[in-house]
Design a protein around this nucleic acid. Sequence first.
DNA 1: GTTACATAGGCAAACGTTTACTTAGTTTTG
DNA 2: CAAAACTAAGTAAACGTTTGCCTATGTAAC
Lengths: 345, 345
Amino acid sequence: MSEKKIATIKDVARLANTSTATVSYVLNEVPSRYVSADLRKRVLDAAAELHYIRSTMASGLKGKKRGIIAALVPQFTNIFFNRFLLGVEQVAHRNNYIISVCNTFDDSVYEKQVLYNAIGHHVDGFILVPTEGSYSNYEIVRNFQVPYVVAERPLHQSHNYDFVAMDNYDAGYTATKHLINCGHRRIGLMTWRTNVTTLQGRPEGYYAALKEAGLEISPNLLYAGDFSEEAGARLTRQMLKDNPDITAIVYDYHVQALGGYKALKECGVRIPEDISVVIVGDPEWEFIADPPLTCIQLPAFQVGQRSAELLFDKILATGQDTPHTPVSETIKGTLLQGKSVKTLL
Amino acid sequence: MSEKKIATIKDVARLANTSTATVSYVLNEVPSRYVSADLRKRVLDAAAELHYIRSTMASGLKGKKRGIIAALVPQFTNIFFNRFLLGVEQVAHRNNYIISVCNTFDDSVYEKQVLYNAIGHHVDGFILVPTEGSYSNYEIVRNFQVPYVVAERPLHQSHNYDFVAMDNYDAGYTATKHLINCGHRRIGLMTWRTNVTTLQGRPEGYYAALKEAGLEISPNLLYAGDFSEEAGARLTRQMLKDNPDITAIVYDYHVQALGGYKALKECGVRIPEDISVVIVGDPEWEFIADPPLTCIQLPAFQVGQRSAELLFDKILATGQDTPHTPVSETIKGTLLQGKSVKTLL
DNA sequence: GTTACATAGGCAAACGTTTACTTAGTTTTG
DNA sequence: CAAAACTAAGTAAACGTTTGCCTATGTAAC
């Protein structure tokens, strides 16, 4: 009930009967500052008694680190970015940082607001998953020399930044290759029509696997549409109609696969007897589906972790001694076998 | 490349050839301050030219609002809290606030760290989803009079706080009632053995529905276990063995339902012909399951929204004019019909 | 018995804003 | 026409920390 105010360093100094300087030195454990055991104890006791908590914003004003990084992701209900953020959070926490999670909704106007807001908060660094138009938004981040790492989607206007992403090419390749290894020859692909360039790695991997196996690469087998269940269902029906001879489908996105799976069942197509299915992604329901889906597990958590690690390397690099050449890393996914692929003789 | 520093109000004042006071007044659009059109323009131009961004931490030092709230949730990979956070974010953004999302991992030690950290950042308010032992952790929040709203799980040591949660009792009741309406008489329940008191509303709702229908309430029909797929599977087998006569099962948690669904299929039980199933929760895969699950859609987004609205009511209530009696709200879920329930004659 | 260093701790100036005061000139009012 | 009221803008004191600089001992070295 008492109108208690949060204790300041002055209150602690007063109670410990010393100066704020000493309190600051004691609490920051500055080794070069001599403080007698007695006084140190008085300070510590006073701080404990008053429940003193350093004001990060006051100390931030003096050029100290703020202990906060911002992560901008396009959709935080997407399980992929969820796991990604979990990876970021783990590393942040290990460094005693908190993380401000911002959803950009894949909208660069919204993103810009969020970015300015965060800059105003003097965050120590950014983990950025770009959206279209991000490059110009990032100008302030570059100008103010706030450390940042770009994740998952590259900026095509520049190559001068650290980048971590999952290996989309490998994911597309592995999914397709698995079907080929199981004897499939006519394999359809359903993908998302997007401008996000890394994601184009998925169809590229598909092509590469086909080519390597000497299979015909037909544009008829490629279906691209919206990032929606509806598109997945509609295009699946279309694909079946256009290509009565296909034996397998690769779904590049779980959302489309969801619609596709339903459409296949509705058409009376049996999985995997009539059509085998592999999806890129591990949406959590891959094994509840009937039959359980063979899928490519994506390294979302690891991408988050690695991005954060790189960011902290930069944040904690005190001087700008080493000019730091930008790194670009990709992390591969893993094939998880379900029961949606039939082995052909 | 230039070692550009972020512009301060002084830089703007210098460029506009005026004082920092005027800049501050102009930029804050203080109506009581007279500024000539000419000077105002000079200030605005200077600010734009220098890409001035107000330092939230410096202005925060002067007792201004920080524009940041913290949301502490136990698990942010849980789809429920995801949607919940989306609701919080929506309201926060509408108020021009950013949100710091912190995962407590249902660990009160971790939670305490996060809480102290956030207090040090002088966040303007908290959305708190408690974990066990939270009450004492919240002491600093109470002491420092930082506004907060508790969501989803109540604190049983006090009643003096704002609280928003989904209606677990209603969810349990509605799920069970639906089965009863479809003619089921022997209905099993699988739930999570937890100390989170609100969650006990789910089994209570189940009991209430049975009682209302004059059905036998047998402890044999109640199976409680871990929050895991494995427990869901194991206990489902046990339930079937113990009660050969049951015709339906209510799963209180989607994670257990996942294991349960698999176990049912492995045992050769047909859904819904042999056993009908309703789950509490809408985990995103409810309709990919085979057959699609009848479920209770949880109002996660709305709970997040409402919590944030209450929080902003408190944050924005300038004076402490009205002493504010604590509110406690619950929001009901909705029945979503799948094909996992058979209507008995 | 100076000089030098190690130990111990206080003073006060930043950091970037906000805002209560102050100063002045220009209208309006009685 | 003097007093009041409005318009316009600058000064400087906070806010809570950090840290360079200073002072004052005690003790070891020359």
